[in-house]
Nucleic acid binder design. Structure first.
Lengths: 195, 195
DNA sequence: CAAGAAGGAATGAACGTTCATTCCTTAAGG
DNA sequence: CCTTAAGGAATGAACGTTCATTCCTTCTTG
């Protein structure tokens, strides 16, 4: 391994504790204990708690983006690519509920707001792919003529909400439902050519 | 006035500081200062910071529910009642962005998790109204046959997401857009009688 | 044995909460 | 009326706790 095991252990411990108890219910001492490491040791790998939190977010995001890129049907039609994205994201987050919970907390904290702003104004990432889809879709008049942020909310809003309920155990997203949801996400942004 | 002005001042100060900086960026001392009150005084009205936070949530919720009930067209058709609810909620939260930000923070904190569960299982409040709509809608086969939590996510997921972007200043929800959104919310749960 | 890694007790700042004291309003007494 | 006492609200300095971070010691490795 390139990076020490301890670094990974710390990140994993932080992920578990923070998703369970929030940023403020996860003191460094406990993260250290859970990681099987001394408190001071964390600071060999992370400059501060803030850095640890930010870095953890960055790593999770990288993994998610990787999962979305993996198998992405670049050459295929718009609709297919979009459905692939939504489906892949849903499947990944259902398989990694802690990642989802962490991301949600992160974006609902002071850390995440500025990042969100950057994202919507277009920084590289999975959003690249998505924004390309939106752009092309609007040019070809297949997708509704809305600001990209609106399209984003329309497509991902319900998905995120359902995911949260699933992960908190209020509902169960089975394969049928997932299929229906991905289709519904597409429907909510595709242009109705009946006008 | 029934309750002292100071109590109100403290709640208002807490609302402003917490929405701006988060629960942990809002020390009691600063809340007190902003409220024009001494630190100790807060404890004449609230047992603890936790109680203050919880109580503030309760009061905001009461006001929102009241706004939704006000003018609710009880006797009217399903679709109309639903559109009224969505529209009223949107308008209220656009007019009261701090309330929205506070609620979001609250629900994404350790405080809010258990509450969410209660809500989905149908405690009194605006959810009463909503659940009745869902129930009747499914009986009359006007609304899709989904668990209520799923219907909730479908209808409110995009709305909440758009609201957030609007309040954070990433997009502007004008009247046209609001109209389109409320209609889209209905579309996403109404049954397509084409099958 | 040298050099870096790990340990964990010590440090100090930040914070929620408490409480002895002050201030203000209202009532009582002359 | 005016003075003064009583009661409770408000104050804010002080306390104790929690926690991120530091620092010095001990261990490991080559």
């Amino acid at each position: 391994m390139k990076t020490s095991d301890k670094r990974t252990d710390v990140l994993q411990a932080a992920l578990e504790l923070i998703t369970e108890r929030g940023f403020h219910g996860a003191p460094m001492a406990e993260i250290a204990k859970k990681a099987g490491v001394a408190a001071g040791t964390i600071y060999r790998y992370f400059e501060s708690k803030d850095m640890l939190i930010t870095e953890l977010h960055r790593e999770l995001e990288d993994r998610i983006v990787a999962a979305l890129r993996d198998g992405y049907p670049s050459g295929r039609p718009l609709r297919e690519r979009f459905l692939y994205l939504i489906g892949a994201l849903l499947r990944y987050l259902i398989a990694h509920p802690l990642h989802f919970r962490y991301m949600e907390q992160y974006f609902n904290s002071p850390y995440g707001i500025s990042l969100h702003r950057d994202r919507l104004l277009g920084k590289p990432g999975s959003h690249d792919i998505l924004m390309d889809i939106f752009k092309q879709g609007m040019e070809e008049r297949v997708i509704k003529e809305f600001p990209k942020a609106v399209l984003f909310s329309l497509a991902f809003g319900p998905m995120i909400s359902l995911l949260r309920d699933h992960i908190l155990g209020f509902i169960v997203l089975d394969d049928t439902l997932i299929e229906q949801i991905t289709e519904a996400c597409w429907d909510s942004i595709k242009r109705n050519n009946t006008a």
